[in-house]
Design a protein around this nucleic acid. Structure first.
Lengths: 230, 230
DNA sequence: CGACGGCTTGATCCGAGTCAATCCTGGTGG
DNA sequence: CCACCAGGATTGACTCGGATCAAGCCGTCG
């Protein structure tokens, strides 16, 4: 029993929500539900949260810190699927097995909850059921946007897209504090560490950004960065 | 009301299904439901089924022919997200707007159904509700696998992966009849048409495949192709 | 202060892109 | 039935963006 409609009227009618809300919504109910059923655990920098191929029985939310998910090729080439920062849910899968390995980028605290428990709650909470669906659809949308980046964008465009995306996820949309290393960025953008570094330097020379420290980027000219996208 | 649990026991308990079935399942119920509510339309080769940014109110299934979905950059660079062949459902989105443009690759027949109608049926059909979820999760999984290909695989590996994937989708797993042009393959694999062509020729020289006609490929040595993957 | 890990910079290389001819092949009309 | 044509596919010559190889340069932490 994945989902159930309740007669206790949900605060917003789900049918309407399907056709009117953006694909990536606030996910209030999902975060609350996971907070209610989950237990928080501490993950040291670079420690594994779960591994590709393991049973996908749990769901997570980042309380503090950040997480990367990735796949490896046999010779060690790595593709990072996504980063997850404070407040974001990750590890929600419909299938039996983990498709990615997840690791803490920095010392982190994450909530863990049983997938079955969440799904059970969704059975009499239409809003939550809707948000589970929206969450997977949102991940799909991010993955699809990333396909375009990896398949067709040049290095400068990739980095600009990345910076704007990171800025958009936080409150402050000008100062970007990167939790991840250049190697992580490279493996996310399908580039090498050297190309990421050179490209950032180039953007700084062009006055589009400032790099006060290697983990902090100031977006000086978002318009210029935006022009490097579409 | 997206989903509803029925007390008329579903033929297989959904909880069990969540943890035991593969992420990409048969989707019998989804296909049947769409067949029941849909009307079939004819799409000429290269005609648009829907466009990026349009309201996402309908869902489709390929009856015959094939479909591509893609995004464009402003200067015309194209990334194909996926191909859909006979029997496959496409265009099922949770958000309000189309994320891709969809076009018929060849003269095709597709079923169209209202998303709201499907979602309404799912309200008292747990199996169908489950399959809607599994379908989106399956698309996510394909997209994520494709991220690895686009971000980290070399041209030969990309083409080998593509051929094995196409073979796996059909009955015959040795003879691959490609409904799409070299340009489509190139835009799917993040390569150019010339590189795709050269790579196929190279694979033929290496006796991994045969190319009796440009749209038909015979996989002579699947093991060799497989070695070009992981 | 020294050492280590992460980052930057430089020099060179190479895989895939670009530009430019052909080469099929399947469809058409004489 | 065959010659022709058009569009897709292949092949070749050359270029180039980003990878690779190789030093240095911080900045942080012991």
């Amino acid at each position: 029993m994945l989902y159930q409609e309740t007669h206790r009227s949900p605060s917003r009618p789900v049918h309407a929500a399907v056709s009117s809300s953006p694909a990536v919504a606030k996910q209030q109910a999902l975060a609350e539900a996971l907070t209610a059923i989950g237990t928080s655990i501490r993950c040291a920098r670079n420690s594994e949260v779960y591994g590709e191929g393991e049973p996908a029985e749990t769901v997570y939310m980042v309380v503090s810190g950040a997480v990367r998910t990735y796949k490896l090729l046999s010779d060690g080439r790595r593709q990072i699927g996504d980063f997850h920062i404070e407040g974001e849910v990750f590890g929600l899968e419909a299938g039996a097995e983990r498709q990615f390995t997840a690791e803490a980028i920095a010392d982190s605290v994450v909530l863990v909850g049983k997938r079955n428990a969440l799904v059970g709650m969704a059975a009499n909470n239409a809003e939550l059921a809707y948000e589970l669906w929206v969450h997977t659809a949102g991940e799909l949308q991010r993955a699809q946007d990333h396909l375009l980046l990896l398949g067709r964008k040049r290095a400068q465009e990739r980095v600009a897209t990345f910076l704007l995306d990171m800025a958009g996820r936080r409150k402050s949309d000008i100062f970007v504090d990167l939790p991840m290393s250049r190697q992580d960025i490279a493996d996310y953008l399908g580039l090498t560490i050297e190309t990421v570094s050179r490209t950032l330097t180039r953007l700084e020379d062009d006055a589009a950004i400032e790099i006060p420290t290697s983990r902090r980027i100031v977006l000086r000219d978002k318009r210029a960065l935006g022009r490097l996208n579409a």
